[in-house]
Amino acid sequence: MYFTYIIRCKDDSLYTGYTSDINRRMKEHETGINSKYTKAKGFDKLEVYFETDTKSKAMKLESRIKKLTRKKKIDVIENPNFYINEIGERGNYFIGSY
């Protein structure tokens, strides 16, 4: 399994990434390991994640989300199902949030 995720930093900025181990990656963000961005900005919380079966799909979704405006990223957080349907990827992702 692979995951694309959006986290909120302590300064209210949003960070998007992908990983094969969501729990390990969140611990890394919390401690500032392997991410200059979250080390500098501080990790607040995982907002939403998308689970898929291939690294390629996770990376593609990460790239798409990173190109969005902040407002659109907030829309994705608030209604991830709508976003997945909008980009025509329904059935390719499981959506989770904390």
Rank of each mutant, 00 (worst) to 15 (best):
K10V: 08
I95D: 05
G96W: 02
K71A: 14
T4R: 03
N79L: 08
E28G: 02
G88S: 07
A40R: 14
N85W: 07
K10F: 06
K10M: 14
P80S: 04
T16L: 02
L61E: 01
D75E: 15
R64N: 07
L61A: 01
L46P: 03
I22E: 01
V48R: 01
D11W: 09
G88R: 06
Y49K: 09
Y83S: 02
G88P: 09
A58Y: 04
K67L: 12
L61Q: 04
E28F: 00
S20M: 02
I7P: 00
K39T: 09
S35G: 05
K67S: 14
S97R: 15
T52K: 04
K60F: 08
K55E: 12
S63Y: 09
L14R: 01
I65K: 03
K67N: 15
V76D: 00
V76L: 06
I74R: 14
L68G: 04
F50E: 03
H29K: 05
S56R: 11
F43V: 02
K39A: 13
T38C: 12
D21L: 00
V48D: 00
T31F: 13
Y2C: 03
N85I: 13
K27Q: 14
E30R: 15
T54F: 06
N23I: 11
K72L: 10
F43W: 08
S97V: 13
I77G: 08
G42I: 05
R90V: 09
F82K: 13
K60E: 10
S56N: 04
K39S: 09
M1E: 13
R64I: 11
S63A: 10
K60Q: 08
D12R: 13
D12S: 14
T38F: 01
I87N: 00
R64F: 07
K71F: 07
D53Q: 11
D11N: 15
S63R: 12
K72N: 13
S20P: 01
D75H: 14
I87V: 12
K45F: 06
R25Y: 04
S63T: 15
I65E: 02
D44N: 15
K36P: 04
R64H: 11
I95V: 15
S56A: 13
K36S: 13
V76A: 05
